[in-house]
Computed example of a mutant assay.
Amino acid sequence: MSISISDVHWATSGVLVVKGVSLEVPTGQTLGLIGPNGSGKSSLLRLIGGLRKVKSGVITLGDTRIETMPRRDIAKRVAFVEQQATTETQVTVTEVVRLGRTPHRGPLAPWSTVDEEAVDNALRQVGMIGKSRQLWHTLSGGERQRVHIARALAQTPSELLLDEPTNHLDIQHQLEILSLVSKLPITSIVALHDLNLAAMFCDRIAVLSQGRLAAVGPADEVLTEELIADVFGVRAHIERSPHHGRQHIHFLDCIS
Rank of each mutant, 00 (worst) to 15 (best):
I149L: 07
A150L: 11
R151Q: 02
A152C: 10
A152V: 12
A154Q: 03
Q155V: 12
Q155P: 06
Q155M: 06
Q155S: 08
T156Y: 14
P157H: 10
P157N: 13
E159F: 13
L160C: 04
L160M: 03
L161T: 11
L161G: 04
L161W: 01
L162V: 13
D163H: 13
D163P: 14
E164P: 08
T166V: 14
T166F: 09
N167D: 10
N167V: 15
D170I: 14
D170G: 06
D170V: 12
I171K: 09
I171R: 14
I171S: 14
Q172D: 14
Q172Y: 15
Q172I: 14
Q172E: 13
Q172S: 13
H173W: 15
H173Y: 15
Q174F: 13
L175G: 04
E176M: 02
E176W: 12
I177M: 10
I177S: 02
L178I: 03
S179P: 07
S179K: 15
L180M: 12
V181R: 04
S182Q: 08
K183E: 13
L184R: 01
L184Q: 09
L184D: 08
P185K: 08
P185D: 08
P185F: 04
P185G: 05
I186N: 12
T187Q: 09
S188T: 11
I189M: 11
I189H: 01
I189R: 06
I189Q: 09
V190R: 00
H193D: 01
L195G: 07
N196Y: 00
L197R: 09
A198E: 05
A198D: 00
M200F: 13
F201A: 09
F201T: 06
F201N: 01
C202W: 04
I205D: 02
I205M: 06
I205R: 04
A206E: 06
V207R: 03
V207M: 06
L208K: 01
S209E: 11
Q210Y: 07
Q210I: 11
G211P: 05
G211D: 01
G211L: 00
G211V: 00
A214E: 09
A214W: 00
A214I: 06
A215Q: 06
G217P: 01
P218E: 01
A219I: 10
L223F: 03
